[in-house]
Simulated scan of single mutants.
Amino acid sequence: MADQSDKAALYWKANVRLIVISLAIWAFVSYGCGILFRPLLAGISVGGTDLGFWFAQQGSILTFIGLIFFYAWRMNTLDKELGAGEE
């Protein structure tokens, strides 16, 4: 019983850590690169517009989609490691 609760605690600790890291990356890309660092990125051209505008319009969305796939892959790996899979 204690082994099962230890695995559950470890599982949720890893899950919450992964969520916090993913949200921090997404916030940095969308808020940081799209708004705060936009003046610094204005000199770099991507597709006919500056890089800060690109991050605000496309980069944050693409980063979010990438994070969704990374989260799903990592959680499947964690499920297999800790025996919480959907077999």
Rank of each mutant, 00 (worst) to 15 (best):
F70A: 07
I44F: 15
G34K: 08
G59Q: 04
W12D: 06
A27R: 02
S5Q: 11
L41C: 02
G59W: 06
L51I: 00
Y11C: 00
I65M: 14
A72S: 05
F53R: 07
G85F: 12
D79G: 09
V20K: 06
I44R: 11
L62H: 09
M75I: 12
A2M: 11
I21H: 03
N76D: 14
W12R: 11
G48W: 15
M1E: 01
Y71P: 03
G34Y: 09
L40N: 10
L41M: 04
T63Q: 11
G32C: 01
S5I: 04
S30F: 00
F53T: 10
F64V: 11
E81K: 13
N76H: 14
L10M: 03
D50I: 02
R38H: 10
A14D: 02
F53P: 01
K80H: 14
I65H: 10
N15V: 03
S45N: 12
G43A: 09
V16H: 08
V29C: 07
S30A: 12
D6S: 11
W12T: 10
M1C: 06
P39G: 14
I44Y: 14
F37I: 01
G83Y: 07
S30T: 11
L41F: 10
L82K: 03
F69V: 12
F69S: 05
A27C: 02
K13V: 06
W73K: 10
L41R: 01
E86I: 11
F69A: 05
R74E: 11
V46Q: 08
L67R: 04
V20Y: 05
A56P: 09
I35S: 07
V46L: 11
F55K: 00
F70Q: 01
Q58A: 08
F55C: 10
G66L: 12
L40M: 13
G83K: 09
L40E: 13
K7H: 02
Y71N: 02
A2N: 11
I44Q: 05
G85D: 15
L51P: 00
D3K: 15
L62G: 15
V29A: 01
G43W: 00
F53Y: 07
A2S: 12
R17N: 02
D3E: 14
K7C: 00
F37V: 05
I44M: 13
Y11K: 03
Y31L: 07
L78Y: 14
V16P: 04
K13I: 04
N15H: 09
G52V: 06
Q58Y: 11
W73F: 15
E87A: 14
D6P: 02
G59C: 05
E86Q: 15
D6Q: 13
R17F: 10
V46G: 08
L41Q: 03
V29R: 01
Q57D: 08
F53Q: 14
L36E: 03
E86R: 15
R17H: 04
V16R: 13
A42N: 06
L41T: 04
R74C: 08
G43R: 03
S22Y: 12
D79F: 09
K80W: 14
E81F: 07
A8C: 06
L82S: 09
A24K: 02
E87M: 12
S60I: 02
G85Y: 14
A56Q: 12
V29I: 08
V46D: 09
A9P: 06
Q57T: 00
S45P: 06
A14I: 03
